[in-house]
Design a binder for these strands. Sequence first.
RNA 1: GGCGACGUAGCCAAGUGGUCUAAGGCAGAGGUUUGCAAAACCUCCAUUCGGCGGUUCGAAUCCGCCCGUCGCCUCCA
Length: 457
Amino acid sequence: MKLYSTLTRDKRDFEPAGDAVTMYVCGITASNSSHVGHALSSVVFDVLHRYLEFRGYEVRRVQNFTDVDDKIITKANEEGLSSEEVAEKYIEEFFTDMDDLNVQRATVHPRATNEIAGILRMIEGLIEKGNAYPATDESGSVYFRVDSDNEYGKLSGRTVDELLEGVRNEIEPGKEAPADFAVWKASRPGEPAWDSPWGQGRPGWHIECSAMALEYLGETIDIHGGGLDLVFPHHENELTQSESFTGEKPFARFWLHNGLLRLDGAKMSKSLGNLVTVRDALDSNSADAIRMYILTSHYRSPLLYDEDNIHTQERAARRLRQAATAESEGNTGESVDPAPFKTRFIEAMEDDMNTPQALAAIFDLAHEINRGRDAGHNLTEAQGEMRSLVSVLGLMLAEPEASEDGLSDEDIDARIASRAEARTNRDFAAADAIRDELIEAGVAIEDGPEGTTWSRI
RNA sequence: GGCGACGUAGCCAAGUGGUCUAAGGCAGAGGUUUGCAAAACCUCCAUUCGGCGGUUCGAAUCCGCCCGUCGCCUCCA
């Protein structure tokens, strides 16, 4: 499989260094409900995980939670809760959202606050090696000395000089140089805090990920993933900390970054106030439609959130569902051969996870199955293969469930029976009225040779 | 200001030197089927890839300029 790495800026053949693929994906900061941008990133790496397993690899994926940071503390103060309670609430919500999106759990979901010991070991090691130093103003914070790594900037393609050309560079007291960043933050009274050799404090954001990757995946990991907005400073800092601490390079063999979701032309983010939460999206769209919308564009491209465009995927999803459940009307002895479509699917996925092409192959297979159905060919093998390929993309092709205020299955069956009677009596006006009523209630019906079937839409 | 990405049919979106007379989805048109529909199937739907030049036997794909959109440089998937 070829994958594009942000570090080398090209596509390269990917093989895991060890027996299992080790993958670290940056998770959320548990200070708010997850939005569709988080869903995008999670779906992308979920599909990568599923595909690698489909190709026979064992995958060890770690996705962390940042459960202590300034925003969580602010939120806790606003809501009169503890930091832990806020984090717990949004972590649970994240899992519910992701379950509903059919995103599989990572192998491990570590939380920063459970990893303090490893974080402290790492900071102490960095100080010993001269890569970090306690704040010069004795505040109790610890900073990473960017100057100690002459390769700093290699991931984001920036030099320290360029970074300093940024508009604002307030030099925090206690820093030796403006580009240095905190690995340990001294806490103020009332904030969550842990004991350390430098006093009470909490870990800096970047060091958490370095420590958790080391703890659960080792000194060198195969794939590091996250949103494109994390390249700088988060991943740049994580990289320099990890390589400085372990002395092993590379920290990550492949750096994968998904393109960002935009809304009304701007990136979806809390600070801009243009959020659509995962829950909002799931309230008006099926998980399959949301996943298909994400997967019809390449993962590295930016994606514009558009409710109408997502909704059109419902119809596309239905098309696949129909093909997967179609029943052949004859028995010619011939079978629909899925092999060429499976080959196309694999070739597409092998090329830096080209899910739009992979989906195109699935749609063509669906087309072939439908043709085979009309021709009376055997569909069993093709439909089995189709379900297998579709599941690599995490699509469920499930019938929509009955909504609480909708008609029950029994109600629907009863109405269809009345309609059948009306049709037998050639009272088409009455029959059509029942059909319109069912459509209004979200039930589509189909008259076939063996009677009427229905499905929720 | 610095760094970078993108501009393909009505809409979404692959493709990045010849297999492109450009995938797939949605929408649309005609036909088969149907009491009528729906779904399905068949056929059609960009001589063209923001504009203008250039390189090349050959460019949507490379180079230059221009126009337009967007991202990062600060918390962010």
